[in-house]
């Protein structure tokens, strides 16, 4: 049943390749140890959902820590929360939600053969990511200046209740890990954009665009919970 290298049983759009191999622009690189390209796409999605599950559990550990310390210091957490810049946090929420829309549209455009529109949407997504990080930088900078820092680096005299250094430890751990994911997501989307421009993806083959988009949505997902839990106590 193994096809020879020159003929695909699934038509010219599905090119048999060795595992990890590439197909000419826009065609589906069918690694022949998968019974059909369908199975390959299904397996790729399964791998991505499994990976995203581990990511969710990674962040869940921090959310559980947050729950424990918020239970121990409810009033201090509320006090510290009101010391964050709500406007910047809200703007960042809107920026990330919009970037989630544009990445979903980018996948939609690749699937409908409009690679130019897809490139535009991916570039808007990357610009949103940059805006998010710039705003985050201003927030962090302010905290370094006034000394609302984790643990023993906490020097702010405005709030001197026990638990305040822990709030800011959790603030920096959660938003820091999230910002790291923004940077990784930007790298992935830059790679995807490059290959969309080079014409590697098409309505026949768009799996990497779809999976890169899934990663970006996860970044948005984490922030959807961080925003009310940090800024709106």
């Amino acid at each position: 049943m193994q096809p020879d290298a020159n003929a695909s049983p699934f038509g010219p759009n599905y090119v048999p390749v060795a595992p990890g191999g590439r197909a000419p622009g826009g065609k589906y690189p069918w690694a022949t140890h998968f019974g059909t390209p369908n199975v390959q796409t299904y397996a790729a999605r399964f791998g991505m959902w499994l990976f995203l599950s581990t990511e969710v559990l990674l962040f869940a550990g921090l959310f559980v820590s947050y729950a424990v310390y918020r239970y121990l210091y409810p009033q201090t957490f509320a006090l510290c929360s009101r010391h964050l810049d709500l406007s910047l946090g809200t703007i960042n929420t809107l920026v990330l939600i919009t970037s989630s829309l544009t990445v979903a549209l980018a996948i939609h455009f690749v699937r409908t053969g409009k690679n130019g529109m897809a490139t535009g949407m991916l570039i808007v997504t990357l610009l949103c990511a940059c805006a998010f990080l710039v705003i985050k930088y201003f927030e962090y900078h302010h905290k370094f200046e006034q000394g609302t820092l984790p643990g023993r680096f906490y020097t702010y005299s405005g709030i001197q209740t026990e638990g305040a250094p822990m709030f800011f430890a959790l603030y920096f751990l959660t938003t820091g890990l999230h910002a790291l994911h923004v940077v990784v997501g930007m790298s992935v989307l830059t790679w995807v954009t490059y290959h969309v421009v080079k014409g590697r993806f098409s309505p026949v083959y768009y799996t990497p665009v779809e999976l890169g988009g899934l990663y970006w949505h996860l970044v948005d997902l984490v922030w959807i919970f961080l925003y009310p839990l940090l800024y709106l106590i």
Binding site: L72, Y73, P74, Q75, T76, A78, L79, R82, H83, D85, L86, S87, G158, I159, Q160, T161, E162, G163
Partner: peptide, 21 residues
Amino acid sequence: LPKREAPASELSHMPKHGEAP
């Protein structure tokens, strides 16, 4: 663990967003 919380005096006037404590 004894539950330690901020003294009530410090929490009586919760600032609004954007205000100093």
